[in-house]
Structure formats: structure tokens, C-alpha cells
């Protein structure tokens, strides 16, 4: 599937070797729609160390979501690479990318994206179900269920586990989505404007949850927001402008 041609690295400004948990190196993303092409990312490079809480901010349409999708292996860059613990993911097979999405990365979306047919608990367990075959599931069911329940209790959803998503408030839905992202204990949690769809008070609670996860469980988090003020309050922040990271 990978149609991109890696740029020759004989460039005098050769990129620094990747270090840390996740590294973006010279990421480019161009959308082509017929004759028109839109260059959204034009060479983004940075490293994420384990335990960091990084926020990415920028204007609407600046490519924040695009960048996060590339880091979470939901999409492939036109150019450049995402490194996971120094390994170039562009060389990975489809299968391995699936496994990484399943186990190493947790994703929280602005619009929650819960499965309406499943209960809160089942939604939370979904990545675990994807991970295990039917046979393995039988053996581990109890343990995984307990883990999911623990996470849900911690996120304040202890009495909502049997509910369907449509019976929940926006904040509860987003917390369910966070629980789902955490159930396989990922190394990296990616959150794309997790508060974008919530009122400020509820949004603040979600942020609190993420901050607590980062402090108490050393969860590495990469969060997209367009709230510059918020970005500055939390750990390191990156400013995305004109397809590149700009100095803040």
C-alpha cells in the first residue's frame, strides 16, 4: 500500500536519529482531490518521551488531527516516518500495524465513536476482544473484565456499566471512550480534542482525568486542542502552523 518514495537522506540537514517512545520525522501529508492537492503537513518532526503529557494546538484546519492520525497509525504519511521506540513503522506489515493500534496506542476521539449496540462495559472491552481469539478469550475473560471494571470505576462510571451509550451524557460517553483507550494498557494515549464537544465544566473534568492518569500512572499522553491557554497550562506544548511546528 505504501506508495511513497522516501526522500534521499543525503541532505545536509539530515534529521536527528529518533529517540524516546514515539518520534515523528519529517512528516508530510498531502491530500489530493483530482487536480487540486492540499499540503497539510510539510515536515513535522518531534520526539515524545515516556511519561510526558504533550499538547498540540493550532487553528482549525491546521492539520492537528491529521498529525495525530499519523502518529496513531490510523493513516499513512505521504512522506517521512513515524518511529515507535526507534523502529520505523513504515516498514511494518499491516498486521503489525493493527497489533500496535490495538495494544500500544489508545485513541480518544472528539466524537467518542462508541458502538451503540454495546453497553459501556462491552465498549470498554472491545480492544481486548479484538486482541484475543475466541479460545484465549475464554481463559482471560474474568481478568480482562475485572480490569475494565476497575478502569470504569476509576473514571466514575461504576454504576453505568450496563448502560447503552445513548443513555449517557456527553462527559460519560467521553470517559467511556477513555476507558476503552486504556483497557489494553497502551504505552501512548492519543486524544483528539477530547473536550471539544463538551461544555467547559465537563471538559475540565475530562482534562482532570487525563492529568491524573499522567501523574499517577505515568501514562504518556499526546492531546490535541485548539485552546492555547489550556495547552500552556499542561506540560510541553507544540504549536502547529502552516503545516510545520512553530516556536511558541
Amino acid at each position: 500500500m505504501s506508495k511513497r518514495k522516501n526522500k534521499p537522506t543525503t541532505d545536509s540537514r539530515a534529521p536527528a536519529p529518533p529517540k524516546g517512545l514515539v518520534s515523528a520525522r519529517d512528516l508530510h501529508k498531502t491530500y489530493r482531490m483530482g487536480a487540486v492537492s492540499l499540503e497539510v503537513l510539510r515536515g513535522v518532526s518531534f520526539d515524545v518521551q515516556a511519561g510526558e503529557f504533550i499538547t498540540i494546538y493550532g487553528h482549525s484546519g491546521s492539520g492537528k488531527s491529521t498529525l495525530l492520525h499519523l502518529l496513531g497509525l490510523l493513516d499513512e504519511p505521504t512522506n517521512g516516518s513515524v518511529f515507535l521506540e526507534q523502529d520505523d513503522t513504515s516498514t511494518f506489515s499491516r498486521r503489525r500495524r493493527n497489533a500496535i493500534r490495538n495494544r500500544d496506542v489508545g485513541f480518544v476521539f472528539q466524537f467518542y465513536y462508541l458502538l451503540p449496540e454495546l453497553s459501556v462495559l462491552e465498549n470498554t472491552l472491545l480492544p481486548a476482544m479484538v486482541e484475543h481469539s475466541t479460545l484465549a478469550w475464554r481463559g482471560k475473560k474474568k481478568e480482562l473484565r475485572r480490569r475494565a471494571e476497575e478502569i470504569l470505576v476509576e473514571l466514575g462510571l461504576g454504576d453505568r456499566m450496563k448502560h447503552r451509550p445513548k443513555e449517557l451524557s456527553g462527559g460519560e460517553r467521553q470517559r467511556t471512550a477513555i476507558a476503552r483507550a486504556l483497557v489494553n494498557q497502551p504505552k501512548l494515549l492519543l486524544a483528539d480534542e477530547p473536550t471539544g464537544n463538551l461544555d467547559s465544566k465537563t471538559g475540565q473534568k475530562i482534562i482532570d482525568v487525563l492529568v491524573r492518569l499522567n501523574r499517577e500512572h505515568k501514562q504518556t499522553i499526546l492531546m490535541v486542542t485548539h485552546d492555547e491557554e489550556l495547552a500552556h497550562q499542561l506540560g510541553r506544548s507544540l504549536y502547529l502552523k502552516d503545516g510545520r511546528l512553530a516556536k511558541t
Binding site: 500496535i100 493500534r101 465513536y113 462508541l114
Partner: peptide, 16 residues
């Protein structure tokens, strides 16, 4: 479609 996206985003394979 969107739910399919979710399943794939959390690691579900194409054939799955």
C-alpha cells in the same frame, strides 16, 4: 462505516 472505522482504529484487521 464509522463503527468499522472505530473497530479498525482499535486494531481490528480488514478480514476481521
Amino acid at each position: 462505516t464509522r463503527e468499522i472505522g472505530v473497530i479498525k482504529a482499535i486494531g481490528g484487521g480488514g478480514w476481521g
